[in-house]
Simulated assay, not measured.
Amino acid sequence: MPRNLEDFPLYPYSVGRHIQYHHVRPSGFPVHQLFLIRSGKGIFRDLTDGTETVLAPGMAFVFPPDRGHEYYPLSHEPWHVAFTGIYGSQTGPMLHSLGLLPPSAYHPVRFEECWEAIGGIWQTVNGGNASRQEEQATQELSVSLYRLILMMRRGEPSAGTASRLENEHVRNEALQKAVRLINEHFTEPLLVANLAAAVGYSVQHFQRLFLHEYGVTPHKYLQNLRLERGLQLMTESPGIPVQDIALNLGMETNYFIRVFRKTYGCTPGVMRESLQRSQSQAANRQKQ
Rank of each mutant, 00 (worst) to 15 (best):
L227W: 06
E184C: 07
V199H: 11
G85I: 11
E135W: 12
L191K: 15
R45S: 11
K262M: 04
Y264I: 02
C266S: 12
Y146T: 00
P108D: 00
F210I: 00
G42W: 04
V125G: 02
Q123G: 01
K177N: 03
S27M: 10
A159L: 12
N183D: 14
H96Q: 12
G230S: 09
G50A: 09
K177M: 11
P2V: 00
V15P: 10
G85C: 14
H169A: 12
P73K: 06
L47E: 10
Q139K: 15
Y106H: 06
Y87R: 14
S131D: 10
E156C: 08
G50N: 06
L95N: 03
G42T: 02
P218C: 02
G120C: 04
I118Q: 05
Y201A: 03
S274L: 13
L195H: 05
D49N: 15
L55Q: 07
R17T: 06
Y87T: 00
L231P: 06
L275R: 07
L47V: 07
G200V: 02
L55M: 15
R229I: 00
Q223F: 01
P102V: 01
W115K: 07
G88S: 10
I37L: 15
L225I: 11
I121Y: 04
F35T: 05
Q223D: 01
H212Q: 14
Y71W: 13
V125I: 09
A193D: 12
L227T: 08
W79R: 14
N4W: 14
E273S: 09
F8T: 02
Y146H: 10
F61C: 08
R45I: 08
V199R: 12
P241G: 05
R3S: 10
R154L: 04
L231W: 03
L10M: 09
K262T: 03
E252F: 15
V216L: 13
P93R: 05
Q204C: 04
R147G: 00
N167L: 13
L249W: 00
T187D: 01
E112D: 14
S97T: 07
N126I: 09
S75C: 05
I245P: 01
R164M: 08
V54T: 08
G239A: 10
Q286S: 09
R153T: 00
F206R: 12
T51P: 06
R67N: 03
L55I: 05
F111D: 07
T48D: 09
F61E: 07
E166A: 10
F83W: 15
I257Q: 12
Q232P: 11
S39M: 08
C266M: 15
I182A: 01
P9L: 04
I121W: 05
E184V: 00
I240H: 04
A82D: 03
E116K: 13
P189H: 00
A60F: 03
A162H: 07
P64V: 00
V109E: 12
N284V: 02
G58C: 04
E52Y: 12
S142G: 10
Y13P: 01
Q139F: 12
L190Y: 08
D46T: 06
L191M: 14
E70N: 08
E166V: 01
L231Q: 10
T253L: 12
I86G: 03
H22I: 01
